[in-house]
Design a protein around this nucleic acid. Structure first.
Lengths: 213, 213
DNA sequence: ATCGACAATGAACGATCATTCACTTAAGCA
DNA sequence: TGCTTAAGTGAATGATCGTTCATTGTCGAT
């Protein structure tokens, strides 16, 4: 029956909603107190849900935090995957490659991608050995599609400029630069300037690929 | 009396030795279990000292971890302060400035400065809100003497090359690049290549200051 | 030999932790 | 209306947390 399935779907929605509320509350608690201060009591208080809920939906507190790490990574991946998907398979012209890189800079330092919450949590997860060893794919710089995309752009631009150094090295420099500026944001979120960060990236790209930035 | 003072000094040495043993043990525990897993019991087990020792020497566990953070920062500062002290006050010639930057790259990625332990702990401390807010000076990239030094070098080299972009921006790019490569090391300590990292820095410097690297 | 000063010890403590589970509530179905 | 199933609840539990403090050990001074 239609009503039965609908009801079941509503149930499912409620369940997922509670999961989301718990994940969100956990993120807020970690934001304020760090992973070491993320206790069941605090998460319960923050979420407004009952105490048993956490173990009901996530089996254990550690698992909840693990799933939050996965969740955050997926969100970040989605953000730039949406970005890279707009590019054609091959970045044919150097002008196009340059535009792609410029767009990447602007994406990576946009409020949506880089903010106090995402930065704090990223660094919090990176610091926990157990979460870091969770396996490849989470909060990674190496071996990602993003890295491949940057490498492609650098390859095209290096050829166009006849630049010294191989594209892989240049790509790694750009990836690391982004990473380093993220760190700067994390350490000084209030003094940090998004425009300035993009300008630093642009200046660097300009040095690597003169005439294209 | 001489013997009295000597004895007192010996006592003092023993006390400091225990402090050091505790700091070292705490570092090892954080290395394996993160800040959230650094408990008195584990530190006690690791150090081989008695349980009460921690509160005797450090008042509280939180204070012990705080002092470890201070200790680690001092060690890192000493490492590159030893490096910058070899430079003259003013980096007069561009050749000299280039050599200084190159030396900085080699210092920053040397085993003595960057290793699993230093990286893990740095990231662990950065992730804890309480430790991060400990005040300026610890584990900082901005506003340090190191930053000033790099800025000076960039200033001289920019003038010599007639480069686009102001020295401050270039300096920030180099500092961030170092930071980002540290992050890469932290995430992939076994795949990381020190030589490659230095090469990435050299390539970037070469792009900023053609002819000097 | 005795004493005073102080480092060192670890059993004991109350607080807080994550987790459990008997129970309540709600909703679809016959 | 009862029955079945599953979500939600929170008091109770035992483990582990950081800290305390009465006691012991050490050693120079008297």
């Amino acid at each position: 029956m239609a009503s039965a399935e609908e009801a079941k779907k509503k149930r499912k929605v409620d369940k997922d909603l509670h999961r989301e509320v718990l994940l969100d509350a956990t993120a807020s608690v970690i934001l304020r107190h760090g992973v070491s201060g993320a206790t069941i009591s605090r998460i319960q208080e923050e979420s407004g849900l009952s105490r048993g809920m956490i173990n009901l939906h996530f089996q254990s507190k550690d698992n909840l935090i693990r799933e939050l790490a996965v969740h955050m990574t997926r969100e970040y991946n989605a953000a730039w995957q949406n970005f890279t998907s707009q590019a054609p398979e091959e970045v044919s012209t150097p002008e196009h490659a340059a535009a792609r890189l410029q767009a990447l800079f602007e994406t990576d330092f946009s409020e949506a991608v880089l903010n106090k919450r995402s930065a704090r949590l990223t660094f919090a997860f990176r610091a926990e050995p157990e979460l870091q060893a969770l396996g490849t794919g989470y909060i990674e710089t190496r071996g990602t599609d993003l890295h491949d995309h940057v490498r492609n752009c650098c390859h095209v631009l290096c050829q166009a400029c006849g630049t010294h150094g191989d594209p892989e090295t240049v790509a790694m420099a750009i990836m690391s630069l982004l990473e380093g500026l993220w760190t700067d944001f994390h350490a000084h979120p209030d003094e940090f300037s998004r425009e300035n960060a993009i300008e630093i990236c642009r200046t660097t790209a300009c040095a690597f690929f003169p005439g294209y930035f």
